[in-house]
């Protein structure tokens, strides 16, 4: 069984008779007994997308998926083409299917991702929990502030914005948690 707390971008689970994949985490809020989440999900069987709210009390059936390690080969418009590193076969996923993960990967990356297959079709991508990216823009760094408690916005080489500690500068490489985009540490 899958608990609500296990559900994140890319998770595939059974909602009633439907099989859905989480495309985006639209909001995670502090409810009374833990988080409440708002998700955008895609029904794998019908292709329809919808929004769902989840509290912490629910359990879901896991869906049998096949996972293949792949690398993002190239991007063609809104289509992301992944290559199986063993068979060299290529598979397409739409930008919408990748959801929030789009902001963390580029074809230049050397890390592999796991592409989930349902009924022999690629349905979602799971990234490594921690990845390294480079800051391409942020306000100048403040030396001496190493606490990390105060943060500022920074643009990454993938184009997304995240929050980073004040000491970060343009060109700084940072390790990020891909589950929520939070800063983990500076990479030397």
């Amino acid at each position: 069984m899958l608990m609500t707390s296990d559900i994140r971008g890319g998770t595939v689970f059974k909602s009633g008779d439907d099989v859905v994949v989480v495309q985006r985490m639209l909001g995670i809020k502090a409810g009374r007994a833990g988080q409440v989440k708002k998700l955008r999900v895609k029904n794998i069987l019908t292709g329809q997308t919808s929004e769902l709210g989840l509290d912490m009390g629910e359990k879901f059936e896991e869906v049998h998926l096949d996972f293949h390690k792949m690398k993002l080969s190239y991007v063609d418009g809104d289509t992301y083409i992944f290559m199986d590193q063993e068979s060299f076969e290529q598979y397409e996923l739409s930008k919408e299917d990748l959801g929030d993960n789009v902001g963390y990967i580029t074809p230049e990356d050397d890390f592999e991702v796991e592409v989930a297959f349902y009924d022999e079709k690629p349905v979602s991508v799971t990234l490594p929990t921690a990845i390294v990216r480079t800051i391409t823009y942020c306000e100048p760094g403040i030396k001496g502030d190493t606490s990390g408690k105060t943060q500022k916005p920074a643009t990454l080489d993938t184009g997304i914005q995240v929050s980073v500690p004040l000491f970060c500068e343009i060109g700084t490489k940072i390790k990020l948690d891909t589950r929520d985009g939070s800063f983990i540490e500076r990479v030397k």
Binding site: S15, G16, R32, K38, E51, L52, L54, K59
Partner: peptide, 26 residues
């Protein structure tokens, strides 16, 4: 799922929002 009381704007976003269970009948 009757959540706790909050004045935060997300209360409007989540109010009457469809949720999910593992059964189509629930």
């Amino acid at each position: 799922s009757v959540e706790h009381l909050t004045a935060e704007p997300w209360a409007v976003e989540f109010h009457r929002l469809v949720s999910a269970t593992r059964s189509a009948l629930v």
